[in-house]
C-alpha cells in the first residue's frame, strides 16, 4: 500500500507548478490553468487528509465536491471575462492591461 505522504507529495508538486505558472506567465488563459492546478492540489490534499482518520471522514469528500463545483463556476466566469477583454483590447496579456489601474 502506498503511504498517504506520497499523495501529499504529488499535491505539493502540483501546487509548486501552479505557483510557478502564476508568477511567470502573463497570458490570462495560462494563469487560469495555473489556478486550476492549484485547485486540484488542494482537492487532492483534502481527499488524502480525509483518509488519515480511521474510519475516514466523509467531510473531506463533500468539501471536494463543493470545490470542484466552485472551480467550474470560477472557470466559466473567468473565461467569459477573458473573452470580453480580448474583444475589447485584442490582447489578453495581463501585464499590458492597465485600464482598471488607478
Amino acid at each position: 500500500m502506498e503511504p498517504l505522504s506520497s499523495f501529499f507529495a504529488v499535491s505539493v508538486i502540483l501546487l509548486g507548478i501552479g505557483i510557478y505558472g502564476l508568477t511567470t506567465k502573463r497570458n490570462a488563459i495560462r494563469i487560469l490553468f495555473s489556478v486550476e492546478l492549484i485547485y486540484n492540489a488542494a482537492n487532492l490534499n483534502l481527499i488524502a487528509f480525509a483518509r488519515l482518520r480511521n474510519p475516514p471522514i466523509v467531510t473531506g469528500q463533500v468539501l471536494v465536491l463543493f470545490t470542484i463545483a466552485l472551480a467550474a463556476m470560477e472557470a466559466a466566469v473567468g473565461l467569459s471575462i477573458i473573452i470580453l477583454v480580448s474583444r475589447l483590447n485584442a490582447e489578453i496579456d495581463l501585464s499590458k492591461l492597465s485600464k482598471l489601474k488607478g
Binding site: 502506498e2 503511504p3 498517504l4 505522504s5 483518509r51 488519515l52 480511521n54 474510519p55
Partner: peptide, 16 residues
Amino acid sequence: ANATAFPGKDSCGSGC
C-alpha cells in the same frame, strides 16, 4: 513529510 509519521493508507471500510 519525512519528519511527520503519516500512517499508511489502510482499508477504507464503511467510511468510503
